[in-house]
């Protein structure tokens, strides 16, 4: 279901609810108990302000924690443009056989979605019941690969990426090797892909005004401090390097993980309504029925 379909659905639903609500209002003014009655009460109380599709999804579905049925998730996986411009997920991820399906990831069944990729290193793409945005599925749908605008065709295993990966795997220490071979990568145009800006173009300091995500990639101290450090503070900043674990380090994730569907523009909304619904399904336990 793409944005237009979603929009029509929510508007139709909204209109129906409003019509039904009006009838109920005439018949019963006591405190409601059903979902529809609660909606009506919120309308009466002036608690509902809807502007655009996102607001409708938030107010009607997410704000009321309506159980997301797997049927809807299955539809999303089969629908082109469900999360932004691009092919349906199951075109590339249709079975657990890595010979025919990238990463052996089967998004065509609930069990396959929950199992995750079957090709080594086999791993789940989310944890049922947890917030999904930090796990692989959420990251792939929401996070733009860096540097912003890097082409899908750029391999994530070229020497520059390998250097960063090895440095993190070896403990991310502030060594002479780091200063000579790793740190300069973040300050060099085209270091990770042709025609891309240096990382420090946007992540250079934490002064006023702050760098993007309050991130400073120009020094070892800044890298280890992490993101959002101005507002969250030093102790609570989002760590982007987990020494010894490059796959868990968002610094490395952002360098190598392409946003899905393949070729999607970085300008596409990363909080597409369908993405939010999918992540809510995961938070609710990713139930298959």
């Amino acid at each position: 279901m793409n944005t237009a379909i979603l929009s029509r659905c929510t508007r139709t639903l909204l209109a129906g609810l409003l019509a039904l609500g009006s009838m109920l209002a005439l018949a019963d003014t006591t405190l409601p108990t059903t979902l529809n009655h609660k909606w009506l009460q919120d309308l009466r109380d002036g608690k509902v302000k809807l502007e655009g599709d996102h607001a409708a999804v938030g107010a009607l579905i997410l704000g009321r924690d309506i159980p997301i049925p797997y049927d809807y998730v299955a539809t999303l996986m089969r629908t082109p443009n469900a999360f932004g411009q691009g092919p349906a997920c199951i075109v590339c991820h249709s079975s657990g056989n890595p010979a025919h399906s990238y990463r052996g990831l089967n998004l065509s069944t609930c069990e396959g979605i929950r199992a995750g990729s079957r090709e080594a290193p086999s791993r789940p793409i989310f944890q049922p019941g947890e917030k999904g945005s930090k796990h692989i599925l959420g990251r792939r749908l929401r996070n733009n690969r860096m540097p912003l605008g890097v082409s899908f065709s750029i391999s994530g295993d070229n020497p520059a990426y390998a250097t960063v990966r090895r440095w993190i795997a070896d403990g991310a220490v502030n060594s002479a090797h780091f200063r000579k071979n790793v740190l300069p990568l973040f300050a060099r145009d085209g270091a990770f892909a042709p025609d891309t800006p240096a990382c420090t173009t946007c992540h250079m300091s934490n002064q006023e005004p702050p760098s993007f995500h309050e991130l400073d990639l120009s020094t070892y101290e800044g890298i280890m401090l992490g993101a959002d450090s101005v507002a969250k503070g030093v102790n609570n900043a989002t760590k982007i390097v987990i020494p010894g674990n490059p796959d868990a380090s968002s610094l490395f994730q952002h360098l190598v993980e392409d946003r899905m569907p393949p070729g999607i523009s970085p300008t596409e909304d990363r909080d597409h309504p369908n993405t939010r619904i999918l992540l809510r399904w995961i938070e609710q336990g990713a139930r298959c029925n």
């Binding site: 025609d195 800006p197 173009t201 005004p209």
Partner: peptide, 28 residues
Amino acid sequence: DYRGGVHNWGALMAELVSNDKEVHALDL
């Protein structure tokens, strides 16, 4: 548009400024 080309601006970290007729954006 992040599809390359000379017309793409650099990223903006400087605060925008304005006068009564113009808005000024210094890119990186």
